[in-house]
């Protein structure tokens, strides 16, 4: 792990509200005991239906910043969706809003999700559609997203931002750190002892 203060790279504009995790990673690709190879199946059905899908568009190959709209990643809790995106090379997502489970799953993979106004997102997406080669700079510390002359103010919950900045975005080590405190809470819960007197 490492602190994540900024992500810079080319962008990929993906328009549409309520893009659910079944769309991102259809269930048939969950038939495996590893996450390996998921990057090849992102939006597989959407891409088949639309040859001009941004994930099939060679101009966006190698992009590391995904720009999406409202309620991205809703539906199933499958981590296979953000795993696929991270393995594809996406390092940060900027969108109007995210489902809570998707946002949490992305964060523990070190893939920050920032939110910005619909107008800002539209401006970013339009710019990327006009100039696919442009570099986007996503500052996790200040929330400023810059692409050429375009500057957008994005947000992230302060706790989550600090976790990225201080290399604490994967909480497992912290959760394992205070076993005695965990045991004290467990012991205080009446159902753990089977409601004995």
């Amino acid at each position: 792990m490492a602190a994540i203060t900024a992500v810079a790279g080319r962008g990929l504009p993906l328009r549409g509200a309520d893009l659910d995790t079944d769309r991102i990673m259809p269930a048939r690709f969950l038939r495996a005991v590893t996450f390996e190879g998921l990057e090849h199946h992102l939006f597989e059905d959407d891409r088949a239906a639309d040859p001009a899908h941004p994930f099939s568009d060679p101009r966006y190959r190698g992009a590391t910043v995904l720009v999406v709209n409202r309620n991205f990643g809703c539906g199933s809790s499958r981590e296979h969706a953000p795993q696929g995106l991270a393995r594809y090379g996406i390092k940060a997502i900027v969108g109007e809003s995210f489902s809570e489970i998707f946002l949490g799953n992305s964060s523990v993979l070190g893939m920050p999700c920032l939110t910005a106004s619909p107008e800002s997102i539209d401006a970013l997406q339009s710019l990327l559609e006009r100039e696919p080669q442009i570099v986007i700079d996503v500052r996790v510390d200040t929330g400023v997203v810059t692409a050429g002359d375009l500057h957008v103010q994005a947000q992230m919950p302060p706790g989550m931002r600090d976790a990225f900045l201080t290399d604490q975005w994967n909480p497992t080590a912290m959760l394992l750190d205070r076993y005695e405190q965990v045991r004290a809470v467990a012991t205080s819960l009446p159902y753990i002892s089977g409601f004995q007197e």
Partner: peptide
């Protein structure tokens, strides 16, 4: 079920 508040501001929840 709260064990403590983590440095990230999140709650460690049993």
């Amino acid at each position: 079920h709260a064990v403590r508040t983590l440095a990230s501001g999140q709650t460690q929840l049993f």
